[in-house]
Design a protein around this nucleic acid. Structure first.
Length: 219
DNA sequence: ACCGGGATGTTCT
DNA sequence: GAACATCCCGGTG
């Protein structure tokens, strides 16, 4: 995949500056205000943003919204626990949980503190650090399009685990943040029911970049 | 292409 | 003890 420009400032962007724009490029980190809206609004707006973790980055191509206490499918539906505590914190942080005995999944907390509104990151288009991603996903992912084509896969590819639970994406804790490189979200994103749920799966809160390579299984 | 089963361990009932 | 916001591999059409 070709890029119009290579944002060289990405790799070195490690410090917790509050400046919205990185000097010398149209690339900017998303600030807390971006996440402080309802998950159903934030979810499609996250499409085509970059999730960055140190030298690795992928473009977000598939997400799902989970609406806290109002949503039977949300981990927050039955209130706060040790596991889901990060979701009840301020927006702009990660909620990372462990599931099926071997996989991690990452959410972006949004809304307002205490609301437990979140967006599950389901698939990325790999953009940078592909060698590291391949190493992290070996031996399973044979094709690059399978590196990040699912919520568990993208966490494995970027090395996101329990230690990233609660990481602040605005400050760039542990080298993780979300970046806008000027690519707008799709005007008409794909919309469908949510994947892998036994309750409230048909709520149309899955959003994806139509036609993108590397969507998850049910994409 | 599609489907079925097993892996694996944390969390909550 | 059951459920789980999953993934991978090996079967079959």
């Amino acid at each position: 995949m070709t890029r119009a420009h290579r944002p060289t400032s990405l790799s070195g962007a490690r410090s917790a500056t509050s400046a919205p724009a990185l000097p010398g490029s149209g690339v900017c980190r998303l600030q807390r205000e971006f996440f402080g809206r309802n998950c159903v609004e934030v979810a499609p707006d996250l499409l085509n943003k970059l999730l960055v973790r140190d030298g690795r980055a992928g473009r977000i191509v598939e997400v799902e919204a989970y609406a806290g206490a109002l949503d039977p499918a949300s981990h927050a539906y039955r209130g706060q626990t040790a596991r889901n505590a990060a979701m009840f914190g301020p927006p702009g942080r990660l909620y990372v949980y462990f599931t099926y005995g071997m996989h991690f999944c990452a959410n972006v907390v949004c809304g307002v503190e205490g609301e437990a509104s979140a967006v599950l990151l389901r698939a990325l288009h790999p953009e940078r650090g592909l060698e590291e991603m391949r190493a992290a996903r070996a031996p399973a992912a044979r094709l690059d399009r399978d590196l990040c084509s699912g919520p568990g896969k993208l966490c494995q590819a970027l090395g996101l685990d329990r230690s990233f639970d609660g990481a602040d994406l605005v400050a760039g804790d542990l080298g993780v943040f979300v970046v806008d490189d000027g690519t707008p979200p799709p005007v008409a994103p794909g919309v469908s029911g949510r994947v892998g749920l036994s309750v409230a799966a048909d709520v149309p809160w899955r959003f994806y970049v139509a036609g993108a390579t590397g969507l998850s299984r049910s994409g």
